[in-house]
Nucleic acid binder design. Structure first.
Length: 414
RNA sequence: GUGGGUAUAGCUCAGUUGGUUAGAGCGUCAGGUUGUGAUCCUGAAUGUCGCGGGUUCGAAUCCCGUUACUCACCCCA
């Protein structure tokens, strides 16, 4: 039992073998897919000025107002651990030269939100995300969605669904809010108190409420897209058509909204059953963010790696399947053989062969038992008698067969 | 931030209305005469019963606090 005073903080955990194998699989395959779509990695600082987040995510969003880990440094500067990846990535893009306005980047790493932990929600969690900067273009949105689905299939995930919606342009916002309020106002008094409050502060959030009374009311209200300009509606249509031509199925969900202020036009979510209440694997959308005197347009998404792993596990894909196994396990018998076998192991490793060995003089039986547990395909047994004869016993663990070989043959076989 | 559940061996969990030396399975280690694993048999080690306080002749068991885990609300990936 770990000493309680040295446990990780609430909602944060160590990730080690064997679990880490699935993380490595996810990251490895993601890099491969990103390369095919010609996205490049960026690594931005985990600690940023608080202002970067309040400014780009919106200073009334919960993420910014109550969930950030914020601190002052020794110079009294207000800093925060990043709660998401887009702000930093966009800051980096904005600081670059002119050609970076069309940057295509991806990132993977830890994010921090001080919320109550729950299924699929940690305080330090990990995201893999992409940002494709560039002027609004529905085809760019569709390409990014295609990339996202490609990732899911590379990881072997089945049963994920995409829900898509538009939240229109900032110019549409006033009409949308007013239209929605007007539809709800006559029956406002029927709603619970917190919903009534949200009616004033953030009426869009009523769209995805879990409250039954609110849900019913929203179902009766006209879809918000009806309050948007013809351009905004055409934009969504082109996204959907492009996706269709790529043979990608999406479900239009008029109640889908996003919590962060920077979104415009297309927004989407990838959901998966078997995740509990936090069923969104990934969220994405088009955004417009002001950084200094530059406006960065772009489209991107972020996936929660912990949630992804939970979804994979629901599909029967687990870390053990990716646990690395040595090609060779070396069993020694006798002082002299042990010493020589360490040299042999070193040579094999330098030739690119994963190789494990027992470093004590335990009985052969115990060493074989350990060899079996590592999952090694083959075992080299070399004791002092083999050493004298200049041979190696090579055993195939699966078949249970073994034979004696000399050094040149051994090297050729491996 | 609000609310429910949980915390006993490395892991999964038993532990009767508070009663004497706290248990099982798995794993680990060792043996089953020569130097061979995944099966089988035998044996052994390992616990401040999450932590702190209280009630009691006596607490793993009851009460309070605390930390963490877990689930939901909220929020979001």
């Amino acid at each position: 039992m770990a000493s309680s005073s040295f446990q990780p903080l609430q909602g944060m955990s160590d990730i080690s073998a064997p679990d880490v194998a699935i993380w490595q699989m996810i990251e490895e395959r993601a890099r491969e897919i990103f390369a095919r779509y010609r996205f490049q990695e960026i690594r931005t600082p985990i600690l940023e000025k608080t202002k970067l987040f309040t400014h780009s995510l919106g200073d009334t969003t919960d993420v910014v107002t109550k969930e950030m880990y914020s601190l002052e440094d020794r110079g009294g500067r207000k800093l925060s651990l990043r709660p998401e990846g887009t702000a930093g990535a966009v800051r980096c893009i904005a600081s670059g030269a002119e050609e970076t306005v069309n940057a295509r980047v991806y990132y993977m790493g830890p994010m921090f939100r001080c919320e109550r932990p729950q299924a699929g929600r940690k305080r330090q969690f990990h995201q893999i995300g992409v940002e494709a900067a560039g002027a609004p273009n529905p085809r760019a949105d569709a390409e990014v969605i295609a990339l996202q689905l490609h990732l899911l299939s590379a990881w072997g995930l089945d049963g994920a669904k995409i829900r898509l919606n538009t939240i229109g342009l900032p110019e549409d916002r006033a009409a949308v809010l007013e239209g929605l309020r007007e539809a709800i106002r006559p029956r406002l008094s029927e709603l619970p108190e917190d919903a009534q409050q949200r009616f004033e502060t953030n009426v869009l959030r009523l769209l995805d409420s879990k409250d039954e009374a609110v849900k019913k009311l929203i179902a009766d209200a006209p879809p918000v897209i009806e309050f948007m300009s013809a351009d905004s509606r055409a934009y969504l249509e082109t996204v959907v058509e492009t996706l269709k031509s790529l043979k990608i199925d999406v479900e239009i969900d008029p109640t889908l909204v996003r919590g962060l202020d920077y979104y415009v036009h297309t927004v989407w979510e990838v959901v998966h059953g078997g995740l509990g209440a936090q069923n969104a694997l990934s969220g994405g959308g088009r955004y417009r963010i002001q950084i200094g005197n530059k406006t960065i347009d772009g489209v991107g998404f972020a996936m929660g790696v912990e949630r992804m792993i939970a979804a994979l596990e629901a599909n029967g894909i687990t870390a053990e399947q990716f646990a690395p196994k040595p090609a060779i396990f070396i069993v020694s018998l006798g002082e002299e053989a042990l010493k020589e076998n360490m040299l042999l192991a070193q040579i094999l490793r330098q030739r690119g062969i994963a190789c494990e060995m027992e470093l004590t003089n335990r009985k052969v039986k115990a060493q074989m038992k350990r060899a079996n547990k590592t999952g090694a395909q083959q075992v080299i047994i070399r004791g002092d008698t083999e050493l004298e004869k200049g041979i190696f016993v090579l055993k195939n663990m699966e078949e249970g067969t073994q034979r004696e070989v000399e050094l040149p043959e051994l090297m050729e076989l491996l």
